[in-house]
Amino acid sequence: MVAVANEEALAYDEDIMDDVEESDSEDDSGEEAQAKPSDKAIYNKEAILEKLEDIAWPKNVDWMHKLTIEHDQGEKIDVNDDLARELAFYTQALDGTRQAFEKLQSMKVRFLRPTDYYAEMVKTDAHMHKIKGRLLSEKKRIEEAEERRKARESRKKAKEVQAEKKKERAKQKKEQIESVKKWRKQRQQGGFTKGNDDVPDLNFEGEEGFKQSKKKRPGVSPGDRSGGLAKRGKEGKNRRARDSKFGHGGRKGLKKQNTAETTNDFRSFNQGG
């Protein structure tokens, strides 16, 4: 008994599943064309045609009253392809408008809006302003994104160039040291007797490798060991201000040493007695 009931339930379930599978091919926009048509649908063609005759305007009515244009869409359009569908509508409208304008031109009627004709529009000015704002902001957004992309690329490139330069410098330095060593060896072999004529041409001025990059700069306090470089760093304004007030880095000794003034200054001695 139970098994029979189960079987019935199963059959019912299968029915449901079939229904569901059928409905899979449909989406919200009503794609029921794929489903099979119901065969008991009414279609009374004669009555429809009769009614059509009844309500239709007279056959010889002037085209100016109707302004209708037919357009052949050609092959079938895929509804789900939004772009193709919209393009089909657009071409239909465009083609129709061209035909209509040719007709209107041949009729010699005034049909184009003069440039100085102002009248109420379908969309208000405020609304059009909004649309314009949106267009502008979209344009701006795209431009900004473009700019960001460019900046990123240029940064990448700069990094590469920097790395290349560093490598070059290291290589140069190595070469210089090598040449000095060689020269020293030569001198040792020669027993330090030879004159200065075979000194390698180390032009210390021009070469970058030997140049002291951390050269002391004017305006740097003598106590500052970093030669003022520390102050160029990335740290914040507050840090810098506090460093200049309380001191940071550099030799402490110089600050604590007596100078001529401090030795002659007796203010801090206890004078009372």
């Binding site: 109707k66 302004l67 209708t68 244009i69 129709g96 408008t97 529009m121």
Partner: peptide, 11 residues
């Protein structure tokens, strides 16, 4: 324009 007569295109 509001109220200008439309052209009607039909497929």
């Amino acid at each position: 324009l509001k109220g200008s007569r439309p052209l009607l295109t039909f497929s």
